[in-house]
Design a protein around this nucleic acid. Structure first.
Lengths: 201, 201, 201, 201
DNA sequence: TATGAATGAGAATTCATTCAT
DNA sequence: GATGAATGAATTCTCATTCAT
């Protein structure tokens, strides 16, 4: 994995650099309000140079989202795999998702735009990928329901609510001055999802 | 309020018609993939005519979102006002929000794009308005916490989670074949928010 | 055919005007050395305006060639139809082709570029059309050979030679100061084709 | 002429190789649809390396055409020099030109593009060179006319027709499955030029 | 008021050429 | 010399907006 020539290493660094710059711009302004010239200027490359790294604007954007979503799914899936009980898995999902978003705040808006916004292009490969993760959560809920751990309700709605709840917490970080760590939100999300907001009398 | 000349009434009808057409297009394709010509054709007006009704594309979009969000906020606020206890108000919020989205499915995507996506233009007056509603919910939670009805937790996070949870349910309607009524989702949202997903042994 | 609104008539005039301007530029500089901006400037329209008349540069060029070649084929075919004997038809072809080129000197270079040059785009619909005309000439030669009017030789080669000979005469007009009329060339072409260049002793 | 260092010999071989590759590409796609990168890839050199051999794309193309046309003119002129009578010289021209094109089919299209198409660049040195050859043919016709061998007609038109006729035959090879040898076309061209297509009764 | 042709600024992309390695 | 990454000018095409009819 490290048998890369200096050339190749530098190339990857540059691609990484451009993707970071582009990600930050896309997150702030959205796909259509960012021009290739904008990206080139911020990345300190000439306009034409970008086309040596990426086939075009679409592909650049695609790759950017792809990599992050893949990473997100991988990280979350790994965490979930460390647990066996449905409740445990769901807790891990909350933990992993919030931690990932906390470490990738720029990505939060891109994620929302791509998952919930109008399609940037015809493609929606990313949505499908993430929905596979949600499908996994759905089956975890199904199993939990069967085992009597969870209330009897449509599992895919439970999964959607879980996802919406955690996303909303991540989104709140964008608008407020961010806290030191995501721990509080993680604990809160677990607690509210599992036992609700009602105080037990 | 009805002392309107025929001319004026017709004008409003046309504006309404154009906004509906535009809303449907924006929801499907997003602001930047819809041209004024598209809107004009679908609305069966000439391109230039749109500029007699709206100052420009921005303003048209702005007004479209504005009206819907205002209506949404008004409807939800009214419902909430019919209750007095914090728990009751929160339940009403869930009911009203989901019902509104259910009746305005086109608006769900616009809402997501506008609230969570990158700003279409510099403006974000709408977000602020909706956040006032969330602020209201936040203070409801605060009151509920003080009264011992809700668990002790940052109220604005509880509000965010509530909002995310309900939005996720609305969003699920976009992707699945829609059900006959939003009742099931309303009940589920209330139950999960209040008492969580854990089955009581 | 004349029930055209003023609007429509003006539109056609403008299209005609642009095609003329473009034809002159393409003839002088070739497809790739003429930009849409060049055409717009010469036609005294704004760049974007061209796209209201033509789908794009390809289509503009395509239409330009198409119309001229269609007209050329129509004119030549009509003339040929006025004769019945193979020799008479071939003479008419020479007359009509040279006269057409004489009246459309700009088109001569476009014709050469399109018929003999590398394909401007994948398309070669024009070539095929003209080759249908050549095929007609070929069968005229075949008939003439059968009737004993023409020497016994591959008819398609006779057709090719006839075509090359006349094209060369038309091409000579581009480089020299043009003569008053094409009559001399027409007579010469007929004579040389039919009886050759050798003086009878 | 052979006192060349190995270095210099290799250099010339490489130039030859690149010119061949480029000629094949230009013939197929035309000057503007072939990029230096295309040529470099096909020639298995790095892009920048081409600029060590040629000043630029123009010059490469220029040299390619130049060499071929020079060779063609040289070969044809040599053949023509072996005869003394005007008729004999004209026959030799036909023979030599057709044979040259038959042996250099790739060149046929380049020749047409360069001689009859719009100028690739401002230059037309090649046309002038070839026209010197045609001028030679013209004076051969003039002499033949004076001697009573040829019909009395503008000699430069006779030369043009001869050239057009032979070119058309060469061009026919591009579109049909090529024959084994150019002999038939050579004999046909001579016969038709000299005595026409009419059968003698 | 309604129309839609005209405008031109702005965006993506290509490619000949240069130059540091 | 050879390499190919970097450059940026040039080109095609789109579309919000204006304005004469």
């Amino acid at each position: 994995m490290e048998n890369l020539s200096r050339k190749e290493r530098e190339r990857r660094e540059r691609i990484r650099h451009i993707l970071n710059v582009a990600g930050s711009l896309f997150a702030r302004r959205g796909f259509f309000k960012v021009s290739m010239k904008d990206i080139a200027e911020r990345a300190e490359f000439a306009l034409g140079t970008l086309y040596g790294f990426f086939k075009g604007k679409r592909q650049l954007y695609h790759q950017l989202i792809q990599e992050k979503i893949d990473e997100q799914i991988r990280v979350i899936s790994e965490q979930m795999a460390s647990e066996t009980s449905p409740v445990g898995i769901v807790k891990k999902f909350i933990e992993a998702k919030l931690r990932f978003f906390y470490d990738n705040l720029d990505f939060v808006r891109l994620y929302f735009a791509e998952m919930h916004g109008p399609p940037v292009y015809g493609e929606n490969a990313h949505r499908r990928k993430y929905q596979e993760l949600l499908a996994k959560i759905t089956s975890v809920f199904e199993e939990g329901i069967k085992k009597g751990e969870f209330i009897n309700a449509p599992a895919e709605l439970l999964a959607a609510m879980l996802d919406g709840q955690t996303s909303a917490l991540a989104f709140s970080w964008l608008e407020k001055t961010s806290s030191e760590s995501p721990e509080m939100e993680i604990e809160l999300a677990k607690r509210v999802l599992l036992t609700g907001v009602l105080a037990k009398e």
